[in-house]
Design a protein around this nucleic acid. Structure first.
Lengths: 220, 220
DNA sequence: TTTTTTCTAAGGGTTTTCCATGAGAAGAAA
DNA sequence: TTTCTTCTCATGGAAAACCCTTAGAAAAAA
């Protein structure tokens, strides 16, 4: 193969120095892999990429400093179209994985990947394919968890919901938001309808399960 | 120092092969460290330790196979008194950390440890001291999360609480439990008192936070 | 066997929530 | 501009929750 002639330029972004050592050591064994640099933060890697072109970036998701791997991934693939990003992480949440792929990653490997996995990944990604660990594939393509779909709430409803969760009565909420009691009751009623629940207790419980009770509506 | 003459025999237990590579590479740089073997599962390591003595075992917590790092740690320190175990993990939950230490670990390092950290850890542990990453120390010795102490509930109260959480009305609960509505109301009232909350919404919310809503009271 | 806790139940009143529907105004989207 | 969505407010009645105290019986603990 022609491509085997030239070696691929690789950049590592990873905050665990021991793991970097491992990657270096492993990549050394892969003949057409050449590591240009290893960086602890995404910002450093971005700066480096402005000076040199890389073919592949192995990118961790949990990074120190302001930007997460997801943001870094987005920037790399925006600014350096030819550079392929392969996520290298232990995160197995469906959400995280698709975030990463949606932000331009060409692959997603778990950190327990073998040398072979790495080698294959490099090869495939350079051929324009998308690679991911078996486990990741399973997570991504397994039958969606039976859609615990959250109702779409309006801004006001989120606010009301929040205060209900704080234990305020309808009257108290009305006073706090400077609107009439009837209005709050309307929102309350609509919330119960949207969530299809019989009362505020189950409403809040369900909202918590759906992760919708996190400081919603405080500001306005 | 005398101790520098002989090298420490080290065993690695870790299921991420790349990380093992990193460890090997890093430990190679530490003069008096000698790696006897690296194992993917705890069972393998235990078997190995029956044939050879190790001074130090670097032990991951999440391991494939039946036994967790915590169990392995326990067995190693029970069966091989002279062998020191250093946990090498990314888990930062107070619970996990103290579990590990209670089961005989002499140290707890995070996986983002540097070469220096490793070197120091080896040295200190061999001198009979206990080592841990700065972050771990902080977690362990930081002021206990102000004890979100859960009220002690009676069996009946747990049951009532559960059904409130399921959205049943007082009457419905009374019917379900074959007791009078007044009784249920009493329990309800007492629950609000014990939790010091104004209504059932906050009651359930707080109970969820305290982990008290898990299949409570279903059986009786 | 006392003492304590828990479960049971009641009274009687106040407050809050829930139901269901209608409807005007303002802003955003088509 | 027209349509859609959201926010607003209202009515009026039914149901449920909350308040607080008292109290007997049974079970558990001391």
């Amino acid at each position: 193969m022609l491509q085997n002639r030239k070696s691929y330029n690789i950049v590592l972004v990873e905050d665990h120095s021991i793991f970097i050592e491992g990657l270096l050591s492993v990549l050394k064994k892969i003949e057409n892999a050449k590591v240009l640099g290893a960086f602890v933060s995404g910002e450093e890697a971005l700066a480096f990429l402005q000076t040199q072109n890389a073919d592949i970036v192995f990118l961790d998701i949990s990074l120190p400093g302001g930007k997460s791997g997801i943001e870094i991934c987005n920037e790399i693939s925006r600014l350096h179209r030819k550079t392929k990003v392969i996520a290298l992480s232990n995160h197995t949440e469906r959400e995280t994985i698709s975030e990463m792929l949606n932000n331009g990653a060409s692959g997603y490997l778990l950190k327990n990947a073998s040398v072979n996995d790495l080698e294959n990944a490099i090869e495939q990604v350079m051929q324009g394919q998308c690679v991911m660990s078996e486990e990741i594939r399973n997570i991504l393509f397994s039958p969606q968890a039976p859609a615990p779909r959250a109702p779409r709430l309006t801004a006001r409803e989120k606010e009301i919901l929040y205060w209900i969760g704080e234990g305020l009565t309808t009257t108290a909420i009305a006073n706090k938001l400077f609107i009439s009691v009837q209005t709050v009751e309307s929102h309350r009623y609509n919330l119960l309808q949207k969530f299809d629940v019989p009362n505020a207790v189950v409403l809040v419980k369900k909202a918590i399960e759906l992760g919708m009770m996190k400081e919603v509506g405080k500001g306005r």
